[in-house]
Design a protein around this nucleic acid. Sequence first.
DNA 1: CAAGTGCTTCATTTTTGATTGAAAATTCCC
DNA 2: GGGAATTTTCAATCAAAAATGAAGCACTTG
Lengths: 188, 188
Amino acid sequence: MIENSPPACRIRTIKSADAEASANAECTPSLSAREEIEREVVDVFVRAARLVGLPPSLGEIFGLLYVSPEPLTMEQVRLRLDISLGSASQGLRQLRAFRAVRVQNVPGERKDHYVAEPSFRRLVSGFIEEEIRPHLESGEARLANMRSLLEKVSTEDEPFLRRKVDQLEKLHKTGDKVLPMLVGLIKI
Amino acid sequence: MIENSPPACRIRTIKSADAEASANAECTPSLSAREEIEREVVDVFVRAARLVGLPPSLGEIFGLLYVSPEPLTMEQVRLRLDISLGSASQGLRQLRAFRAVRVQNVPGERKDHYVAEPSFRRLVSGFIEEEIRPHLESGEARLANMRSLLEKVSTEDEPFLRRKVDQLEKLHKTGDKVLPMLVGLIKI
DNA sequence: CAAGTGCTTCATTTTTGATTGAAAATTCCC
DNA sequence: GGGAATTTTCAATCAAAAATGAAGCACTTG
């Protein structure tokens, strides 16, 4: 069942269980309360994704899995969000890298089924490990480089620049210390 | 998503006093130690900007002001970074909104002169106020809406959805509590 | 081992969002 | 007020990022 539909209404009302035989396959005019909630929840994660500079599709996929009472296959995600195969595959892969999503085997089914990580704490810590930590690490090398450049700077400029580099180093150390604390503060 | 991109040579060696004698105006082949440090510092902020989903030009402008021993005019920023007037104007405006930058009057000069906020704590808190808080606030309305929709959901679906909405609400509250703490932990 | 199914990859297209620059607005000074 | 200097705005342009989907890979199974 391949369908190319115009935009506006991203999350689709589910196709499987309920027959929903109606002709209004496109963006059903009035959503059920459950569907509206689902849409709101997906929306929350889309916004959150944008806020931290992640592609919205990641938010969509995660949000959908988060409101799903049972594991979904890639195909189900794809149909439900009306995104391409490639997007679904890549999105799920990245979410897996963040530990935001994992494969859960459903007995007797061949396809992989995905579930959302239910603990926000682990979600955030996965994001930090994967997305922020590398920056802090490369920052270390960068700071070392600046320090070595400081040696070669004119004595006139040196004090000011040293102060700046010192501050950046303090900031870096603060980041190192604060991020794990932050994770510790999330109790969900 | 981990990338070590080349520095891209955005920041120009200073233009003001010295008459730019060399023919190779583009990306001078060998930078002085001071210039290299300046470039590294700007780079730090460009990366930071990208990390939090802000336009890189904001990072550039802030970084440049941060390594400048004296206030710079918009014109100086524009020339030094080789960006358009519009970018400089808009970038400075947004930075002002974050309290990342402020105007400092230089006696006897007509143009506005800008300096970077030297306290990272205030920088972060400005960013949170301006960029994150609004999301938390709209989140409140969103959650209220979900709660009211819960009333209309089938009794079969209700418990699961309620659990999810409850969790989202907890997350929201955590955010409210944690952000100010985070600011408190920054001592610079 | 051939065929079928599910998944990934990646060159291309599409979308989004930043940047530009000229025009309009504002400010300042005489 | 007139006019120059400075800044802001915004429609048009451009570049970066995301989405697409067909081709290819990897399993599994008959």
